[in-house]
């Protein structure tokens, strides 16, 4: 019998701790599939963030660091400078990357650090119980913006991909989503391109993933995927913001 679907080699045979309908599991799997397809499991190093995905090393079986909040790009830099031959990625949420870790991500990108960052933007702090994130939308209710985020009080949500794409050191920057099968396939392509950009030594690469976070959003999984499309995508448009020139 022909096997048409199996667990990626780069994943442990365990179930995750994520809520039903959460996007993390999908992105973990996409990264694992790409690692398998590129045949780089033995030379891939991941850096897990602080946030829901802190236990990433329980799901992916490559070598991994667990970073302090926001510092994953600095740790990845330290590792990559010691082992330039390894493929190093960070996996970070919106609180981690776009709030406490803005200095580290901007400078890693500006240096053209040859690492890849997978940035999960779900517009909320999941692990700590649904507080406002730097990417929380105007009007969005969270436990620390109970009447809806206002620009007067909390300013405007950060468009990380657009910001980073302005930096010369950033070679590949794309925003994708995992709210439907078509977008999942596109997300995987972007993840692969990010790794390839790093492996070719072209510079820093980042894939921002719009991800659903049903529990703190107080939605069902199906409402959540719809919310990504209807509310998030107008403010955070999908697409490639920067891409290395095609060779040849």
């Amino acid at each position: 019998m022909k096997k048409v679907f199996e667990r990626p080699k780069s994943m442990y045979p365990v179930s995750t701790h994520y809520c039903p309908g959460c996007g993390h599991g999908i992105v973990h799997r996409l990264i694992a599939e790409v690692i398998d397809e590129l045949g780089i499991l033995e030379k891939t190093v991941g850096v897990a963030p602080v946030g829901c995905s802190v236990l990433l090393y329980n799901y992916l079986n490559c070598d991994m660091y667990e970073a302090a909040h926001g510092r994953a790009p600095a740790i990845a830099t330290g590792c990559k400078r010691v082992h330039p031959e390894l493929v190093v990625f960070t996996y970070q949420g919106d609180g981690d990357l776009a709030s406490i870790g803005t200095a580290e991500i901007i400078h890693a990108a500006a240096r053209g650090e040859k690492i890849s960052t997978f940035f999960i933007n779900n517009a909320i702090y999941g692990m700590t119980g649904g507080q406002m994130a730097p990417t929380t939308l105007i009007g969005q209710k969270t436990t620390t913006s109970p009447f809806g985020r206002t620009s007067e009080e909390a300013g405007y949500p950060l468009r990380v991909s657009e910001i980073l794409a302005t930096l010369d050191g950033a070679a590949y920057v794309a925003r994708v989503a995992v709210n439907d099968p078509k977008n999942v396939i596109r997300a995987k392509k972007a993840i692969k391109k990010a790794f390839e950009t790093q492996m070719k030594g072209l510079g820093f690469s980042l894939v921002e993933v719009l991800s659903q976070c049903p529990t703190p959003w107080k939605m069902s999984p199906s409402e959540a995927v719809k919310w990504v499309e209807e509310k998030m995508m107008p403010y955070y448009p999908l697409g490639e913001f920067k891409s290395p020139k095609e060779e040849g």
Binding site: A68, R71, A74, I75, T77, C79, R81
Partner: peptide, 8 residues
């Protein structure tokens, strides 16, 4: 943290 990464 770069020291953390390199030491690790």
């Amino acid at each position: 943290y770069m020291v953390f990464g390199a030491a690790g």
